[in-house]
Design a protein around this nucleic acid. Structure first.
Lengths: 115, 115
DNA sequence: CCAAGTACCTTGTATAACAGAGTACCTTCT
DNA sequence: AGAAGGTACTCTGTTATACAAGGTACTTGG
């Protein structure tokens, strides 16, 4: 079955966008993001999230500061950089265009029983 | 600049879905699909489309028949199989859920000036 | 018979998600 | 103080995929 695969692919491209968005709303650390993404049915795991955060950091879109935790090891709290804010805006436009294009294609003609 | 990259990633997952959708509306061959995808600003090239069609064929989601062209070599006209129709329905649900989740995240709280 | 155009195919490369295992720090219990 | 368990972050290997670029094959027109 490669439908699951296609479903995974569909989520992939949007992940980075959603993560940037979550960070844009206030300082958060990885577990916060995982909770929010899971709540939104995005089904992301640690092994996926951390590399993305590292990549965003290296690209200069986000930065972090260490904050001590009341229970456990210190956490990296992330926030957007100026570059990150601009990038997020571009991605928002892309997302909007893409959703429009896709809906344009899938609503173009709904011939369900064509053989 | 990795924003372009993120934009490419965003399109990637939706491509297969859009292609299945275009095929579902009636028999088409590769150049037809390229035109339609380009018109919808999906910006796909030959080297991307043909491997996807081969993959969908091998997965049993689409089938094709050779049809002679009035001007040039014969064309492969694609149509969905029964499996393909079912898969498209699943992908449609996934797309809808994903769009909902994404909009849920990006509309959750618009704190633009948080520092 | 050769050139131009159309249609389909293939190879190599770079990127990215994921699974799974690993490291480090902190708190709590004995 | 030492051990156990939980939290947070990291790393390696595998697999999937888009894309660029070049290639093959068929058809029509001069």
């Amino acid at each position: 079955m490669n439908i699951e695969n296609a479903q995974i692919q569909m989520r992939k491209g949007i992940l980075e966008f959603c993560i940037l968005h979550i960070i844009s709303r206030g300082e958060v650390y990885a577990t916060d993001m995982l909770e929010e993404l899971t709540a939104a049915r995005m089904m992301v795991v640690e092994g996926t999230l951390y590399p993305i955060l590292t990549r965003l950091k290296n690209a200069g879109l986000v930065e972090y500061k260490w904050v001590e935790s009341p229970s456990g090891p210190p956490r990296k709290y992330y926030s957007l950089t100026t570059t990150g804010i601009a990038s997020l805006e571009k991605l928002r436009e892309t997302w909007h265009e893409l959703a429009t294009s896709t809906n344009q294609i899938i609503n173009h003609n709904q011939l369900s029983g064509l053989s």
